[in-house]
Amino acid sequence: MRITNNLLSMVVATKLKGLFITGLFIIPLLSCDVEEVPEMDDVPPEFTLNIQGAGINQTFTPRDNFEEIQLNLLEGTTYDFTFLGADAGGVEQLVLVAPWQSVDFANLPSDVQRTEDGIVTTLIKEGDIDNALTALSFSGEIQIIGVFQESFTLNLEVHDFATPANSTYAELQIKIVEDPDMVGL
């Protein structure tokens, strides 16, 4: 019984830590207007992608070595995600792209554009240069609908309002697993 209580305490503490870290990034950034979009901006935008659900609470940033990362997610499972892009000069666009036969996205905000072309599903949230914000974000659910041992790439993009635009890209490699103990990195 003591082991079960300790394990439960660790799980709750881990989830609270993840929510706290996500809140630290999201709350202060969402309320900041850009006074003036700079003409010159050589600093690329930042992003944070948080995925939470059965056996995982993982946050990714541009500082992660995506070439060395493989995220294992459980077949037939739904995960919550939050995608945040930030730039001092304003965020023009957030983009998530995934193969439509591997994942489905649900519970998206109404201001997120969703397109499907028979190969990929693309989610886009647009900023407004006349009301530029230092951060944009959206949350939803990612449903793993592919089959065991399938691998795919989740593409992440953040663009700012600079001319020419600065962009930050990442490709998160995901493998579908059937064993809950294999979920994670």
Rank of each mutant, 00 (worst) to 15 (best):
I129A: 03
F152D: 03
N155A: 14
P109E: 04
D160F: 01
F148W: 15
N57E: 12
T115E: 10
A135V: 06
S102W: 05
G55Q: 06
P44F: 02
V12D: 06
V91C: 01
A165Y: 00
W100T: 13
I142H: 04
L96Q: 06
F47W: 08
I56L: 14
F105C: 09
L185C: 00
W100I: 12
T121F: 14
T82M: 14
E171H: 10
D104A: 14
L108G: 09
S31Q: 10
G146M: 06
Q113S: 13
P109N: 01
P38F: 03
I69G: 05
L8S: 11
E46S: 13
N166T: 03
F105H: 12
V147H: 15
E67N: 15
D117C: 03
N5P: 00
N57S: 09
E157N: 12
K125F: 05
W100N: 14
V147N: 15
G23C: 01
C32D: 09
N107W: 02
T134R: 13
S110N: 11
G18R: 04
I176S: 07
F83K: 04
Q113W: 01
L108M: 09
F60L: 12
L156Q: 03
P45L: 05
C32H: 06
A135S: 15
F81W: 08
Q149F: 12
E46F: 13
T134N: 05
S151W: 01
F25W: 08
I176K: 06
Q173N: 13
S139P: 01
D104T: 07
E126M: 11
A132W: 04
V34S: 00
F60H: 05
T78P: 01
T61P: 01
E46H: 11
I56P: 03
V120I: 11
L8D: 09
G53Y: 03
E36R: 12
S151F: 02
Q149N: 15
